[in-house]
Design a protein around this nucleic acid. Structure first.
Lengths: 225, 225
DNA sequence: TTCAATTTGTACTGTTCGGTTAATAACTGT
DNA sequence: ACAGTTATTAACCGAACAGTACAAATTGAA
């Protein structure tokens, strides 16, 4: 897709993949901005390089489109996470880096956060229909499992704190930081969301998570602030 | 309201407060379940003891109703929080209790969580119109401020960790635990949401938060699990 | 050449849904 | 008794909106 000659319907290229991609990108922004029932198919179509007709041609109906957007959102974010290289680092440093990365990564992808919020509002019912999403996510915790395994072998990590629990804590703080910004900053001001405040929160988060993972006698001050 | 005789329109009591309350309760459940654009006025009316007409009579329009629901949600939850008595406890115990209470309180009020999620999806725009909500929430952090003050005076608390930051961390983990249950449990199973898993998460959270608040040399093992 | 897949565009349909009208009457305080 | 408030019911309006029909053109691969 992309270019369409100004006049009439002559001189276009067949590019199904491109058309689909374009529709998905626009739809993701619209669903993220307005929710499933709030988003308007006509509005999505208008912002596309193609027409409303093609949305139905490729995605069937609104819910089908939303489902694909959901998959695409997870795909993009998980792909971004894969780039992180941690195996060469000592466990504590790897955990620190992973936590910091997650915090920043979520912060950089607010539309993904909003899509997940919306999916939770819908109680995950569209996610359930997608085999792909479960597939994509099984890998989400593997890095953490590797870190924990090495940490335990090395004797520095507790063995009653599971990788899943650590993932939960890191996710909670990284996710909430984006998802609840509107209400939180309305009530308490936006100092915590300015650069300095965000650094503080991130450092707290890392300190807490690392502190939780390490055996008590290994917890020496390693805070940055 | 409440009772309405089966036949016709004869024999009712005037009870504006009751009618409003009834509408608000039904509307809160519907908005929490379906979101602002997803909720249906006709559906709300049907579940009410009164009629659609009365919704417009008292609340003007859908957004007006949603705004009042939002206020009511915060009112109820904050009222519940006020009951907690902490002044008689040593700072660490008070902080522990407050964190545990918050975790459980959020867990017990999923509809409130969902309303806040929805309001965040709408970027807090309805909240901004309500002076009442800011009022209600100024008190939300006072207990924490008192605890921190006493902790610092006593010399056990760090003074570079603000009550607001602590509140943020406690909120993040308590809120996420409810808000993201659907997607999280779909991906990683629901072990963490069974009784035992929830206890573990709560204990972790308390351990992390208390660990963050205390000066390093005061952090001795106080974990429950 | 053939033919299915892809693309375009417009007009239309059927329904859902927020909000209103209208007419009426019981309630309550004064 | 009267006046203003609170309540009821049911039909109705108009706009928004998901989804379709229809007609036709282009492309690209077999």
């Amino acid at each position: 897709m992309g270019e369409r000659p100004a006049n009439g319907r002559s001189g276009w290229k067949q590019d199904p993949a491109g058309v689909r991609k374009n529709i998905l990108a626009v739809a993701m922004a619209e669903f993220a901005a307005n929710g499933l029932s709030g988003a308007r198919i006509d509005e999505i179509a208008a912002k596309t390089n193609t027409s409303k007709r093609m949305i139905y041609y490729y995605f069937g109906d609104k819910e089908g489109l939303y489902g694909r957007v959901l998959e695409e959102a997870y795909r993009e974010v998980r792909a971004g996470e894969q780039e992180l290289e941690l195996d060469h680092l000592p466990p504590v440093d790897a955990l620190t880096l992973l936590a910091e990365f997650t915090f920043d990564h979520h912060s950089r992808h607010p539309d993904f956060i909003r899509i997940v919020m919306i999916e939770n509002i819908h109680r995950g019912e569209y996610m359930e229909k997608s085999e792909l999403i479960r597939l994509l996510n099984t890998g989400a915790i593997q890095k953490l499992e590797a870190i924990c395994r090495r940490g335990r072998e090395q004797g520095t990590f507790r063995d009653d704190v599971t990788p899943l629990a650590l993932h939960w804590h890191i996710s909670a703080m990284s996710f909430f930081n984006v998802s609840n910004r509107a209400t939180f900053s309305h009530i308490f001001g936006d100092d915590l969301f300015a650069t300095e405040g965000q650094e503080t929160l991130k450092n707290h988060m890392v300190e807490m998570v690392v502190g939780l993972a390490l055996k008590p006698e290994r917890r020496l001050r390693r805070s940055k602030s």
